[in-house]
Amino acid sequence: MIQLSNVTKQYKSGTALKGLTLQIDQGQIYALLGSNGAGKTTTINLLLGFLNPTSGEVTLDGLSPFKDRKAISKRVAYIPENVSLYPYLTGVENLDYFCSLAGIKKSKQALKEILTKCGLQSGAHTQKVAGYSKGMRQKVGIAIAYAKEAKVLLLDEPASGLDPAASNELTMLLKQLAKEGATILMASHDLFRVREISDRIGILKKGELVRELKAETVSANELEKVYLDYMQA
């Protein structure tokens, strides 16, 4: 479970988050919407433990990401907008490498199975990542999270730049992971995809959570209208 209570993050250049309070339960997919600089990435970095909140409390399954870094790293997986892997390694080798860093030892066959499960075609498993498309790299990123059996998944603009088919595949995969019990927080600009994938949607503006919606209660058009209203306000 993800919990942010009255979290503020202050940088030298300004305030990134102002009293953000948020709770995401296990198996839920939560989407954060907001323009650039709204505080989405800061929220994710706080949850990853790379930043310490100026005030307020951030917990993941009751643990502080900043303080209990080791314990957190076993539970959390992160998928950025651009999954950057080692281009000179193959898909399987990349997965093996990141797994071994987390202390996970799996056979080559098991790794291949995970990659297949995450949608990477078997022909690509032993190809160098240098030749992968962005979608293929995202799949390896998800495979890393999957292999780790991560309880919490944090995604930063995961579908940006993906073609519709790849984007759709990603949606399916995330839904599958949520069904298996993962808690997912996703920052995005893609209103359509967000409405489709998530259970709840939060709109961030200048570091404040200005609105929270249940995805099933709004259509894509309505969501767009609400979002634009807030942005222009």
Binding site: F50, V76, L101, I144
Partner: peptide
Amino acid sequence: ESGRLKFLLLQGA
């Protein structure tokens, strides 16, 4: 720059 550093750290390095 590539963002791999976050990946590495999250994996426990």
